[in-house]
């Protein structure tokens, strides 16, 4: 072994790539900016996706994960569909959301709390539960907004579009066994 050929240190960009299906395309970014220009929320982002990719390659983890960029992503896939280098941009945004939640960032947005409340009901009942979300997420995280939504909720309820009790699947044990195994395989708690 030559002493001059050292294994390259695993950098943050490698972690982002490893966690994203087809994430290696990230290295092909030509900084054209089509992504940010296509994004319905681009103007609200601290950094548009193009800039985020540059920051990722530069190892600026703290800057990226404390930004609002991924929380502004609404998964419309316009950037992904238009990217001339087939970068799975929306999926990279999902990866950044997961990393931010895992590493204690993401307090700048209510999105992590919504995701958590939503998946709580999926894990518990096998179905989503809007009334539960309304109380668990809105009342706990944003009581003022919850009050404003009250009237709308009542209108929905009047028209039979809101249920007070959750729907449940029969084989919840089976689903929960699958979830437990997946968490274990993914190294998540």
């Amino acid at each position: 072994m030559s002493s001059t050929t050292r294994a390259r240190k695993r950098e943050w960009v490698d972690e982002v790539i490893a966690e994203t299906p087809n994430g290696h395309r990230l290295r092909h970014c030509i900084q054209c900016g089509t992504c940010g220009g296509s994004c319905p929320n681009g103007a609200e982002m601290d950094y548009t996706p193009r800039a985020v990719f540059n920051l990722i390659v530069a190892g600026q983890k703290d800057k990226v994960l404390s930004s609002n960029t991924m929380w502004q992503c609404v998964s419309c896939y316009f950037c992904t569909a238009r990217c001339p280098h087939q970068i799975p941009i929306t999926d990279i945004m999902y990866t950044l959301k997961r990393m931010a939640i895992r590493e204690g960032y993401g307090r700048t947005s209510d999105a992590p709390a919504l995701a958590k409340a939503f998946t709580h009901y999926v894990d518990k009942y096998g179905r989503s539960f809007e009334m539960g979300l309304a109380s668990r997420y809105h009342l706990l995280n944003r009581p003022l907004a919850a009050m404003k939504m009250g009237g709308m909720g009542f209108n929905m309820f009047k028209r039979g579009r809101m249920a007070l009790t959750p729907s449940r699947i029969r084989q919840i044990d089976q689903l929960q066994a699958i979830i437990r195994k997946a968490r274990q395989l993914g190294g998540a708690s």
Binding site: S75, K97, I101, L114, A115, F118, V122, A182, G186, A188
Partner: peptide
């Protein structure tokens, strides 16, 4: 979209 924001494999 919520589950993908938390845990991809699950």
């Amino acid at each position: 979209t919520e589950y993908f924001s938390q845990d991809e494999l699950t």
